[in-house]
């Protein structure tokens, strides 16, 4: 090797660099290239191939004919048809419900990430071992007299292996539900409504604010319209008559709007009946609303309020 002319060595190095750069460029192109638009059926097939049937051994939802797999396939088809979620988000939705064991493509986080990290690490270790072996053949005296190249090689193997593994895991691993671009379950309207309901018993102002947030994104949300109006009316009862009158007008209008959107919504009918009697003094209309409310099978909490009030309303009318 020492007899090789420097010009030849430079050419050899340039050739190696060219090969490595070409290989990296091809890998990069392979991972980021756009494969073009897929049909809905292609998307359904590709997503169901990534999900394991939860009741069978070693079969994907794509292959299995089990009842649970059929249900998941139908759900995937529905979500692809809706066009709201990406493929990753649909897989994450199913994994969120059935657990990580239904993922045929392992996650890029936690212990699952080892599946992605170990192969590049082992590859780097093997390449490092090869490099060391070649070095020893070419210059045995250097390899045996100093440990420095071995330490450098080990460090390089660890850095390249782990770094490569993390990159592969990021590129290929399954994304978790909370890693989706649209956010997780805690951002949803259902979650805001549930939080508002929870807050309404202890912190009315926060509950009203949460209902307001729902109405910003979903102005026709009947539950938010109804319960916001109910809480506003309850709060106004602590203030002067003027404010109570304003709140009464706004609440009745809000219940009316909720009933326009969903005429059989029992909660809105119940609250309207209560407010019309308690704050408006109109027993006749109240009886009508409360009767319609009870016919609509209201939930237990509201039913309890209404049944006792109806007795009062009947007494006022007699």
């Amino acid at each position: 090797m020492n007899g090789t002319p420097p010009q030849h060595r430079r050419r050899q190095r340039a050739a190696w660099v060219a090969i490595i750069v070409s290989a990296l460029a091809l890998l990069l192109f392979g991972t980021v290239r756009d494969t073009g638009p897929l049909t809905q059926q292609d998307r359904i097939d590709s997503v169901t191939k990534r999900i394991a049937c939860p009741t069978c051994d070693g079969e994907s939802v794509y292959v299995s004919r089990a009842s649970a797999a059929e249900s998941i396939r139908a759900e995937v088809a529905r979500q692809v048809g809706d066009g709201v979620r990406t493929d990753d988000e649909i897989v994450a939705y199913v994994a969120e419900r059935f657990g990580g064991q239904v993922l045929l493509v392992p996650r890029a986080t936690g212990l699952d990430a080892l599946v992605w990290i170990l192969p590049p690490l082992v590859t780097a270790a093997l390449l490092g071992a090869l490099w060391l072996a070649f070095r020893r053949w070419r210059a045995p005296s250097v390899a045996t007299t100093t440990r420095r190249p071995l330490i450098v090689a080990l460090a390089l193997v660890v850095v390249v292996g782990v770094g490569g593994g993390v990159l592969v895991a990021r590129q290929s691993g399954q994304r978790l539900p909370l890693q989706t671009l649209t956010g997780g379950i805690e951002d949803s309207t259902a979650s805001l409504l549930a939080q508002a309901r929870l807050a309404s018993g202890t912190d009315v102002a926060s509950a009203i604010e949460l209902y307001d947030r729902v109405l910003v994104t979903d102005p026709d949300n009947v539950e938010a319209i109804t319960y916001r109006a109910w809480l506003v009316m309850l709060s106004a009862r602590q203030f002067d008559e003027d404010l109570q009158r304003q709140a009464y007008g706004a609440s009745v209008a809000a219940f009316g709007r909720a009933l326009e959107l969903e005429p059989s919504y029992a909660d809105a009918l119940c609250f309207l009946g209560i407010v019309v009697f308690r704050d408006g003094g109109d027993a006749e209309s109240s009886r009508e609303f409360l009767t319609r409310c009870l016919a609509g099978a209201p939930p237990a909490e509201v039913k309890g309020l209404v049944e006792s009030l109806l007795v009062e309303v009947e007494a006022a009318l007699d």
Partner: peptide
Amino acid sequence: ADGAIAVAFGVAK
């Protein structure tokens, strides 16, 4: 009918 509720709750059996 199409198992949407079962999938939403993660019910396999």
